[in-house]
Design a binder for these strands. Structure first.
Lengths: 192, 192
DNA sequence: CGCGGGTTTGATGATGCTCAAGCCCGGTGG
DNA sequence: CCACCGGGCTTGAGCATCATCAAACCCGCG
């Protein structure tokens, strides 16, 4: 049940077996079914979710009712509205399961406890934050300067799992292009 | 010399006068002239710079030699290659002064000292990080779904200082459009 | 069997890029 | 003090990419 979490942590820092046991107990396991929401925009984000299994998306809905996929999360990824979680403000994102999923939830009090009892986890979260910012910066540049095809190919290289498992609509929204354009691109790419 | 810094901190957390004095001493004042570089891509980012006065930009250069402005920083803002600063890896961004500037530099050892002696500064930096992530997410959405004119108008509203002080080339690069397009947009916008 | 969501395919049009020329203005040297 | 240079900004014409709108298609499911 915690394999992915432990792998993710040991990837970045070294913990003793006892520390690992302690860390585990701060997370609450939760299963959630396809199409269920983990968070609704407007609520406060109570939990950061680590994905053990499954696929989720976070997205916003703009004034015209258009959805914009902010992020996908599959096995080994974190998802949540960080800003709402840390500040206690209303969330601006929705989070929905695209597949049946097994999650490990971390509440804010648990997180604080955990950082207190296993201080090395500070480093773990700092690295996650840092990687997230780097990824966001890359995405900004890509969305501004790459063609639709380049964006798609980069996603295929970096996250083949997402391309295979998410619907084209969601992928298109994530890439900032229309589903029709994505369909045509896939056709072209396949012919090579 | 530290007015902007103190304002930025007191905006987010409450410090006693003694704590403020302590904090000040961790920062190294530095003046830098227009066109000077604070950081070259490939070097390690030794300092996070707080801007007391002036205007800077961070940018990448892609394979074709094209520049992409990642960020501007004017009075009261932070600039640096966070990832390089925190991890010690090579920086991917360049940082250049667009105006003569007065900076307050924070090295990594100083930062660690400071967080140790004035723990409330943890919160300050966490809020900065958090705001940064929110801003990046907004920028991603904007760059994917807004027209060039909308992007420009948003920048004008959010950061009039940048629109007034940076060159059109830099603003265009930041917005992900060509200088020609920006020129035409400004003309249209002016006619209202 | 028929419905419905997601995907494909086609035709058309708008937005913004490219390339190219001209202009404005500040700085430099004669 | 003026002429000239050069960088940045403007303006124009043509074009590529991608969005829009619309129709057909595919396939799982009631």
């Amino acid at each position: 049940m915690h394999e992915q979490l432990i792998k993710s942590i040991q990837d970045k820092i070294t913990l003793s077996p006892e520390e690992i046991e302690k860390v585990k107990h701060f997370y609450i396991p939760k299963k959630i079914r396809k199409r269920q929401y983990l968070l609704n925009a407007g609520d406060v984000c109570q939990y950061i979710a680590f994905v053990e299994k499954g696929l989720l998306r976070s997205f916003t809905v703009d004034n015209d009712g258009g959805e914009h996929v902010i992020q996908f999360a599959l096995e080994g990824w974190l998802i949540g509205d960080m800003s709402s979680f840390l500040s206690g403000d209303e969330a601006t994102y929705n989070i929905e399961a695209l597949e049946d999923a097994e999650l490990l939830l971390l509440s804010k009090p648990s997180m604080e406890d955990m950082l207190h009892t296993v201080p090395k986890m500070e480093t773990y979260f700092r690295i996650l934050m840092q990687n997230h910012i780097v990824a966001l910066n890359r995405r900004v540049i890509s969305s501004m300067s790459d063609t639709a095809e380049q964006k798609y190919l980069k996603l295929m290289n970096n996250c083949p799992g997402i391309v295979n498992r998410a619907s084209q609509q969601n992928i298109a929204s994530f890439l900032g292009i229309t589903p029709e354009t994505l369909s045509r691109i896939r056709k072209q790419v396949a012919q090579k």
